[in-house]
Design a protein around this nucleic acid. Structure first.
Lengths: 106, 106
DNA sequence: GAAACGCTTGGCAATATTGCCAAGCGAAAA
DNA sequence: TTTTCGCTTGGCAATATTGCCAAGCGTTTC
């Protein structure tokens, strides 16, 4: 996508696909945790407090969106951020939340 | 949310709610259009190419999420961004897309 | 080889999202 | 007042998402 041109419908769809992949509290938590380093599925499961299969599916979804990558080492599969700049994203998100809540009266 | 503390489950849920509100191509397009100034529902409908009622529901959703506000003037209802910093968000999003697609081999 | 481990996948039910049509509603125009 | 305009809402069907259990699968350990 060339940024000096107006975004096309396809651009908005591509953006929306990534947004959707991130638009879940558990997946946001996983991204945040992976920002501290690679983790195996079990590690993430312990934080997420849901079924291991559920965690695995969330991770597949993030992988399909290109946000994480995995590597099998020994018995475990380790996941890590593939696109670390996704973290800047969170700062923007928190700015939006803060700005909104200030308007609303905290 | 105090940023020097680790995010809680509620923080992730609050973030996810905003992400979900934005995670739709039509709504992303609307936000982008509103970044150029206020628009009435009809204006947005012409760009979105879907039913007026659909546009109206997308706008309600964005309003509930605190992203836009509306004002009735004359016959029309004008919408505008309530939290302009949501635009920074798009820059981050595009960085993520660009970084990912570079890794994938464009 | 057999068993255990770590994870993924299939299947399914519950829930949420999407988008249309039709109806409603308040303000403005006639 | 009646009609029109601009938009919102109700209702609904189609589709997508979510999360569990159970089963499967490849390694590793025994």
């Amino acid at each position: 996508m060339l940024m000096h041109l107006p975004p096309t419908r396809e651009d908005f769809e591509a953006r929306a696909r990534v947004m959707k992949a991130l638009a879940h509290p558990t997946r946001l938590m996983m991204i945040e945790e992976l920002s501290r380093g690679e983790r195996c599925v079990r590690d993430l499961r312990d934080l997420a407090d849901c079924d291991l299969s559920t965690v695995s599916k969330h991770l597949s979804l993030l992988k399909d969106a290109g946000m994480v990558e995995d590597e099998k080492r020994g018995k475990q599969v380790y996941y890590r951020l593939r696109v670390p700049c996704v973290l800047n994203f969170f700062h923007c998100l928190d700015s939006v939340l803060t700005a909104r809540d200030r308007l609303t009266g905290l």
